[in-house]
Design a protein around this nucleic acid. Sequence first.
DNA 1: ATTAGCAATGTCAAGTTTTGAGTGCTAAAA
DNA 2: TTTTAGCACTCAAAACTTGACATTGCTAAT
Lengths: 336, 336
Amino acid sequence: MTERQVKILKLIVDEYVKTAEPIGSKSLAKQLKVSSATIRNEMSVLEDLGYIEKTHTSSGRIPSEKGYRYYIETVAKTIEEDTDGFFEFEKIFSNKEAERDIIIKEAINLLSEATNCTAISLGPNAYNSKVKKVQLVQLSSTHGLILVITNYGYVESREINIDQDMDVDELTKVIDLLNELLRDTPISKVSEKLHYEIEHNQIKELLKYRETIVDSFIEAFSKFAQSRYYLTGQANMLYQPEFNDIDKLREFISTIENKEIFKIIDSEEEGISVKIGTENQVTTMKDITVISSTYDTQDGEKGTVSLVGPKRMDYRKAIPLIKYIAKHIQKLYEEE
Amino acid sequence: MTERQVKILKLIVDEYVKTAEPIGSKSLAKQLKVSSATIRNEMSVLEDLGYIEKTHTSSGRIPSEKGYRYYIETVAKTIEEDTDGFFEFEKIFSNKEAERDIIIKEAINLLSEATNCTAISLGPNAYNSKVKKVQLVQLSSTHGLILVITNYGYVESREINIDQDMDVDELTKVIDLLNELLRDTPISKVSEKLHYEIEHNQIKELLKYRETIVDSFIEAFSKFAQSRYYLTGQANMLYQPEFNDIDKLREFISTIENKEIFKIIDSEEEGISVKIGTENQVTTMKDITVISSTYDTQDGEKGTVSLVGPKRMDYRKAIPLIKYIAKHIQKLYEEE
DNA sequence: ATTAGCAATGTCAAGTTTTGAGTGCTAAAA
DNA sequence: TTTTAGCACTCAAAACTTGACATTGCTAAT
């Protein structure tokens, strides 16, 4: 590919991303100061090489998947440090007061709005997080609140009734025992461990409260099991011209709701990954691009930030943005 | 209106709800065992009375807003105790283990699915709930977790750093003090109260921790301020034929996202309310029906369950359903 | 009061024409 | 050798035409 051909490919991608219309030779001629005939010749070469394609014999060209791929590899990567216009995001991440989960949600919301795509945050698989502390807070003589706190600082609560025949001091002892027993136990192992201990009668005290306290704890733990994800902005996609066809939209939404994207997002790949169209193995996503970036928590866990949208996506904006967000979420975990 | 005319109106509504197509005289003739000409005469009367209308000169009839209104007042109200087919809902509400919020969410999800409309739950305005307890849980020598628990059992948490120069015993005292000071204070008044006490130097101890603890508390409180609502099922609306026109859909979604419906839902009306089309004062909702029902909590607070969808809605199903759900949510509060 | 019959009306789907943006090729110009 | 002007050709999208169809309103007969 000559330098000029690269330039033309670049322009085609940029323009097509903006307008969603096939690009003709005339419009490029103006920008490159050559005649449209010259552009046509070059386009013909680019088409033979597979970087662009026609929607029909006499239409302008649109980028092919290979074209996007090339664009991303060469063009987008060179501008990755361009964090201009990230002002709104800076504001979100510089808020030292707010809780991490809230900050992440806000960033994901803004990401979706800024790109008109669906944004997804897949938190570190909470199922693997560990118990830091369990606690009983007494609310009244008959009510209490069981709290479970993990090493990521997540809190789950369950209300319980305190029967009259329960002695508060004794309850406290049980909690202390549970704390001792469960500290640093992965959430996924809690249920197993409790049942084991109870069955082997190691802790007679627990038995007495089986029905109430222990079961409530297990309930609270199981909430963590649903891995923490946050998905937003399907409605923003309404404004993408590719979804003027409502059936496409329906298909897309149902793909998302069926959790099919998670197969793609939840991959093992490190760092940033861009899957364009058929590069996603799922057939319903042949016109969809998924960009995701992983981040590491302090504990060797991984989380993911992803963006799902049409192939015709503003990669130039989206890729640096996702890198930026992943980096900052990771920072949030480091500061802990 | 003669009895037969009522019968025809009823059939038109039922049929139109099912098919979304204008109803002609022929199809009704079969069911009523009279000729189509007779039906046409009757239809003509119904049209003069304003209960039905034509989409164009030679089309079948569709119900007008007045027609729906009549249908709801007479037909739907008589079948309100019909709780057949609520099996799935019974299952959700009979789960005594799950937390109230979870049950409500599940019910709202199912409501949206069962009706293909958007469902909204507007919880009792948490801003009016009261502080039941504040608590500090120490996680490590340098970290703590501040917890605020309200009379509805909601928990909000904020992590804080514990500086070395903070004495843990002293911290506990501060918490005790805060507990004493804030118990039963409406959330909305907390910030005000704290600032007042601090400025008037009533509690010198607080001053010292202003930056960290007190501010963290205020943060945690402010989370309650966003009144708790849960909105779901916009995607289900994709399957309503009225939204085959994507612009209508866009308009609808943006109405919802702009929180305009809350103006309508959050009304003072008691019990169930059905607003059809232009009965909603918002112009963008002239083709939309909103059904809502309030429920009471034990504390004289009110919550709302609502359903937003096209005017052509299955009122026969939706109205009893919403009544049923509101009733059961109210029960959840009573059992507390 | 009901019905059969029929002209009139407007939608929808299918087919046709027109328009215009865009291409590919060729031959001349640079 | 590269670039360009010119022109015939292609196809999609928009505009228009047509005919089939459902449905109405009316009239006159039952």
